[in-house]
Amino acid sequence: MAVPRLLDSLRGAATQAGGALLGRLQHVRLPGLGQSSVPEDPETAARRWRAVTVLCSPEQVGTGADLPAPLAALGDRLDLRITPAPGDRGTELAARYRDRPSDDDLRALRSALRETKQLIEVGEVLRVDPAPHGVRTPTPQGAALEGATARAGGEGVL
């Protein structure tokens, strides 16, 4: 019984590690890998505006209670900036928290912005799960990838 529990524990740790690694990947600074040119202090990084460009007019984004549900769900914790994008590219929709956000808050905001964009442009949020698959042989790499995938909608450079 101890061995299965140990393996479960290791897989759980790998899953956590995969998610955490994805969260930190964009801050890595290695040749050919990572997105940051200089490390910013956490306060500045957390307070950055997160923005998507939506192919619509600014009026279609809405305000207040008319905002698409994913953004409206974050309530009055957010400041929003809605401006026309140059070159007929649509509308720049930017948001940031009024208070100091946690990593979970930032993931929720990234997901909300992406889902809002999809709702306006396409009319629905694309779902991939449940995707058909065969037997998931438990491996550390598979567990790490599972963790990374579970958080991929809320991570990235946004």
Binding site: L22, L25, Q26, Q35, V52, T53, L55, R89, G90, R110, R114, K117, Q118, E121, V122, L126, R127, V128, A148, T149, R151, A152, G153, G154, E155, G156, V157, L158
Partner: peptide, 25 residues
């Protein structure tokens, strides 16, 4: 429907990958 699709750059679609965090990183 997104700007990339309207430019006929379909493989760059903003709304086709539910796991954008991996490739963005």
């Amino acid at each position: 429907h997104c700007w990339y699709c309207r430019q006929e750059l379909y493989s760059l679609c903003d709304n086709g990958n539910p796991n954008p965090g991996i490739t963005e990183s």
